[in-house]
Amino acid sequence: MTTIAEVRTRRLSVPLHTPFVTALRRTTTVETVVVEVVDSDGAVGWGEAPQVWQVTGDSLAGSQACLDGPLRDALVGRTPDLRESTALVQRAVVANRSAKMAADIALHDLAARRTGLTLAEHLASWAGVTTLPPTHVRTDVTLAAGTPAELAAAASGRVADGFATLKLKVGTDAATDVARVLAVRAAVGPDVALRLDANQGWDAFEAVRVIGALEAAGTDVEVVEQPVPAADVIGLAYVTAHVETPVMADESLFTLEDLVEIIRLDAADLVNVKLAKCGGLTPALELLRVAHLHGFGTFVGSMMESHLGVAAAAALVAAVGTSSLPDLDAAWWSVSSPYVGGASYDGDRLVLSERPGLGIEGVK
């Protein structure tokens, strides 16, 4: 009988071609833990645990210790039966969702490889979707926080790179956020879609004031993401009720319990599901299903992850679909992919490997 034989980890630091700046942090690298789950037949499934101190609180040291300790103990010697093994991962420890993300992706990747399916095909089958998933998904691209002139120049550059949807990082200074958005709209014209992500940078009253000013100026913003601090779900509901622009919950949503509270308060129009927040593909599928059943818009994003984690999120989108174009440009910021095989970018398209699983064969 096939069993899980090994759980191997390593750390990766991937340089970015441009600094990534938000209301919460500035980074010039992607820092992540890569895991390989190996079965007794020698098949390997890959996953990753990104470090995002300001959002998940998970560190490289903590995630690697979790993967090398309780998650390895829970998996080694067990059958790779997916329902059993993914449930073991979620029960093995409290929190540590980046580590759980890595193990859960690796288990799904391993299952897909064992059946000869791409990860998207595997996830579609797992979710009961009968249509063949696409081989690529389109994504927006983020404009790092900056001055109005810097954002306008960056916006023009990203449009030239082939992106038709731009996400502006705001929330660093409510007094000048309107000027930033106006500068970008003037630079790219009316046909490029604009989204805003405040990364918890406003309070509820500032958010209503800034969004109202943008509406009055005719900036045609598509959605505003996480305008208020994560714990202020009542404030999020206040903003949603007092603006016309759709509001998205991001840092306010980690678990199914968080989603229930958002639904109860009607606190947002859309929800952003990220693998590192919820703990992997298995819980992400459940969050998307419940949000859809309750009439909420669905959206899949990523942290600053490598091509591995972003490809897993893209496979999820390809498999089950979302109501809004995803935010999966994180690995586009990398100088290059650190992997042999796997996903790649072509303009605003994240092209998935057509090989089984994620299609990753190793680290360069």
Results as ranks from 00 to 15, higher is better:
S323T: 15
L328I: 11
T322Q: 05
G280K: 08
T322W: 03
P283A: 02
A318K: 02
V317Y: 02
V310C: 15
E244C: 02
L256P: 04
L325A: 03
S252G: 12
A267S: 08
G235H: 02
H307Q: 15
L288H: 02
S324R: 13
R264A: 14
F296M: 13
T298R: 10
L256T: 14
S302N: 13
A268P: 07
M304E: 14
S324Y: 10
V310H: 14
L281K: 03
L236P: 01
E257H: 09
L288Y: 01
L265E: 06
M303L: 15
H292K: 13
D266E: 14
D327K: 07
A319F: 03
S336K: 09
K277I: 12
D266R: 15
A311C: 09
T255L: 09
F299E: 10
D329T: 10
E251W: 06
L265Q: 13
E251D: 12
R264Q: 11
F254N: 09
A237K: 03
E286K: 15
V260A: 15
A268M: 05
V260F: 10
H242W: 03
E244H: 05
V260N: 13
A276E: 10
R264G: 09
M303I: 12
V260I: 14
V335R: 07
E257R: 12
V310I: 15
Y238A: 08
D329S: 14
V290W: 06
M303N: 14
A291S: 08
S323G: 09
H242S: 03
L253E: 05
V273M: 07
H242V: 00
A331G: 01
D329Y: 13
A276K: 06
A314E: 10
G297E: 03
A319N: 04
A330G: 02
D329Q: 11
E261V: 15
A311I: 08
R289I: 08
V271S: 02
L281Q: 02
P283T: 06
T240N: 06
G295D: 09
L259W: 03
A276P: 06
V335C: 00
E261Q: 15
A318S: 08
A319G: 04
E257C: 01
L287A: 03
W332M: 01
V243I: 00
E286D: 14
T298H: 10
A314P: 11
L325D: 02
T255Y: 08
D329E: 10
L328G: 04
V273R: 07
S302A: 15
A313L: 13
L316A: 07
T245K: 01
I262V: 15
L325T: 11
A284P: 10
V271C: 06
D269L: 08
M304N: 14
E251I: 07
V247K: 01
F299K: 11
P326S: 09
Y238H: 14
L316Q: 06
L270K: 04
M248Q: 11
